[in-house]
Simulated assay, not measured.
Amino acid sequence: MITRPPESRDDEHRGARAHFLQVFLSQRSQMEALVSRRVGCRATAADLVQDLFLRFWRRPLVQVEELSTYLLRCAGNIAIDHLRSEGTRVRVNEGWRPDAPDSHGSEPQAALEAGNDLRHVEAALRALPERTRQIFLLNRIHGRKYAEIAKAMGLSQSAVEKHMMRALEACKASLREPPPRTPGKAP
Rank of each mutant, 00 (worst) to 15 (best):
M1Y: 07
T3P: 00
R4M: 12
R4E: 15
R9N: 04
D11Q: 11
H13F: 13
H13K: 12
H13I: 14
G15H: 10
A16V: 06
R17C: 12
A18V: 12
Q27F: 03
Q30W: 08
L34Q: 13
V35N: 00
V35M: 03
S36G: 11
R37C: 06
R38F: 00
V39Y: 02
G40N: 04
G40E: 05
C41M: 00
R42F: 01
A43M: 11
A45I: 09
L48I: 11
V49K: 00
Q50D: 14
Q50V: 06
F53W: 11
L54Q: 09
F56H: 11
W57H: 09
W57R: 05
V62C: 06
V62E: 15
Q63R: 14
Q63I: 11
E66Q: 14
E66T: 15
L67Y: 03
L71N: 01
R73W: 07
A79M: 08
D81S: 15
D81I: 10
L83C: 12
S85N: 14
G87K: 01
T88S: 03
T88R: 15
T88M: 14
R89P: 05
V90D: 13
N93M: 12
G95H: 10
R97L: 13
P98A: 04
A100W: 02
D102K: 04
D102W: 03
D102M: 07
H104D: 13
G105F: 07
G105V: 14
Q109P: 01
Q109W: 09
A110W: 06
G115T: 12
D117M: 06
D117C: 11
D117I: 02
R119V: 10
V121C: 03
E122Y: 00
R126D: 09
A127F: 00
L128G: 01
L128H: 02
E130T: 06
R131D: 14
R133C: 05
F136W: 12
L137Q: 07
I141Y: 13
R144A: 13
A150T: 04
K151T: 13
K151Y: 03
G154I: 04
G154F: 01
L155M: 14
S156A: 08
S156W: 00
Q157R: 14
Q157S: 12
A159R: 13
A159F: 05
V160D: 00
V160F: 02
H163F: 04
R166V: 05
L168V: 09
E169K: 08
E169N: 09
E169W: 03
C171V: 08
C171D: 06
K172I: 09
K172F: 08
A173C: 04
R176L: 12
K185P: 01
A186V: 12
P187Y: 06
